[in-house]
């Protein structure tokens, strides 16, 4: 199949970018979206032009490295990661807009690559448990109710790709932070730092400059890991309880 791409090209973080028209020719319909870009890049390199820079790593939908807003939807039309999106989802001769994930907090590094290290800084603020390493204790010492285990696992599925921020009209990171805070708040291992985690992660999220949640639920609609918006409700609850506990402690 042949496609007309409108791809965001930007030399570096300081340069202005623009959408460039690029033709994608002889693309197998079973190629993934990233493989399509590989083919286009081979073609561009052969012609002595700069290949399109884009993020990718595992290409099996589990690492959260690939991004791209495809025809206005982060990760495109298939509700998976971009690497799991196949060209058979598109029509021959179609025009496809390919833009980087947009947010003030995700500055473009080059072409379609954005810097998502703001997420790392939020994680470093509290998205972990402090545990003694070494011999593990008997698993039966820490009973976890099935309901809590399931809800924690659902939240832990977040791969931190940033599609939630990219889709949100406010560029809010509440789904991401909600997933991280919910995951650990539901498990016994997360209890010791439950209060400080909620306070520190939200403070870092605010300081990084992410927007505020308006409950548009665009994040949930594009999340490739199916994180539900109820983690945002849990975050709202966790944070307020933490603020009260911290205030009167």
């Amino acid at each position: 199949m042949n496609l007309h791409l409108k791809v965001w090209r930007q030399k570096d973080a300081k340069s202005a970018g623009k959408l460039a028209d690029i033709e994608a020719r002889n693309i197998p319909e079973d190629a993934s979206f990233l493989e399509m870009l590989d083919i286009v890049n081979d073609d561009l390199t052969g012609k002595g032009e700069e290949p399109i820079a884009f993020d990718h790593d595992c290409r099996e939908g589990i690492c959260g490295t690939c991004s791209l807003s495809i025809n206005g939807v982060p990760h495109g039309p298939s509700e998976t990661t971009t690497c799991q999106l196949y060209m058979r989802k598109f029509k021959d001769g179609e025009t496809i807009h390919v833009e980087p994930f947009r947010a003030k907090t995700f500055p473009v590094v080059r072409d379609l690559i954005v810097d998502r290290s703001a997420f790392d800084r939020i994680q470093q603020a509290g998205g972990f448990i402090t545990a003694r390493t070494g011999s593990a204790q008997d698993a039966n010492c820490l009973p976890v109710p099935k309901v809590a285990a399931d809800a924690a696992m659902e939240a832990a599925a977040c791969i931190g790709c940033g599609a939630c921020v990219a889709a949100c009209p406010n560029a809010s990171a509440m789904l991401f932070v909600g997933a991280k805070v919910s995951h650990l708040a539901l498990l016994p291992q997360g209890q010791a730092e439950r209060t400080s985690r909620a306070l520190k992660m939200v403070r870092t999220m605010d300081e990084e400059g992410f927007g505020n949640c308006s409950n548009y639920l665009e994040c949930e609609a594009v999340c490739p890991a199916d994180i539900p918006a109820s983690v945002i409700a849990r975050l709202n609850r966790e944070y307020t309880v933490a603020a009260v506990k911290d205030g009167v402690a």
Binding site: G72, V73, E99, R102, N170, Y216, L217
Partner: peptide, 16 residues
């Protein structure tokens, strides 16, 4: 929220 959005998308498709 407006400040956080930054550079606008050329194409936006709302889903929810």
């Amino acid at each position: 929220n407006r400040a956080a959005r930054g550079t606008p998308y050329a194409v936006t498709t709302r889903r929810a």
